[in-house]
Design a protein around this nucleic acid. Sequence first.
DNA 1: ATATCATTAGAAAACAATTATCTTTTAAAT
DNA 2: ATTTAAAAGATAATTGTTTTCTAATGATAT
Lengths: 135, 135
Amino acid sequence: MNKFEQLLRVNHIKVTPQRLRIVEELYGHVHMSIDELYQAIKKKFPTISLATIYKNINAMIEKGFILEVQIPNQKSKYELVKPSHSHVVCQTCGKVEDITLDLDTIAHKAANLTHYQIKEEALVLSGLCPACKAG
Amino acid sequence: MNKFEQLLRVNHIKVTPQRLRIVEELYGHVHMSIDELYQAIKKKFPTISLATIYKNINAMIEKGFILEVQIPNQKSKYELVKPSHSHVVCQTCGKVEDITLDLDTIAHKAANLTHYQIKEEALVLSGLCPACKAG
DNA sequence: ATATCATTAGAAAACAATTATCTTTTAAAT
DNA sequence: ATTTAAAAGATAATTGTTTTCTAATGATAT
Ligand SMILES: [Mn+2]
Ligand SMILES: [Mn+2]
Ligand SMILES: [Zn+2]
Ligand SMILES: [Zn+2]
């Protein structure tokens, strides 16, 4: 049993070929929008329905092993859950990359200032990637 | 000439009663979704069209004096541009608050790690507000 | 103040994104 | 192998956003 099949079983979600391809795609591409997923999966799975993508993405978010990443001026991307991290986005070419930054200090400061109990942090930094900066 | 009228003129956008109400509402409520704006403005302006809200919000974003704030599990909110700041959101009641945090260190670290030129930062912290934490 | 012109508001239609419904198929447990 | 609940796929319905068109209005010049 491969790791993607395991991922689905561990999360008590039935293993189907469509779901396996979704997690395989996300593993390979890291961040994908609904439509990017749909287009990618259609190549090997021409009959898949867009509704299947939506339903499964929502189910997987519900189960907690994939995550929505909101990006300014783009459709949301989805990714497999992994250790908490932030994102940098290129305003020119749209590329999205992971970056690990320690937000603990910031989060504590925020908790002290607002008296909120902070549970999640979402940081997106936008700018120019090395390629677009040069070109 | 009041400050809202000025805000529109300074940004080279024609002053209309509908636009004045939009910026007045945003000034009063700080963060509002399209629909919250629509409902609020309809009270004093029953004939306003939803398309007018959309068109004006987009125009004002274009001009650069209002800003979209993306929030997990909520529709985007819009606010008048003011000094850069972050947001805390209550996962229970949905309340959104401003918080001023210094992200410069983080942004520089990110620039060094990724070689991106960072131009904007969007940080949203989610958790429980004091009221929901207690109740 | 009035006339002019470009822009905007409003209404409706068009378009896009997402969710719900229904039937057939399929995964997995017995 | 049989059974059963869940999922896929197709489609319709819903929701969200943009476009189009015409009448109204704000800005500018007279
Ligand atoms: Mn990521
Ligand atoms: Mn704000
Ligand atoms: Zn780039
Ligand atoms: Zn709350």
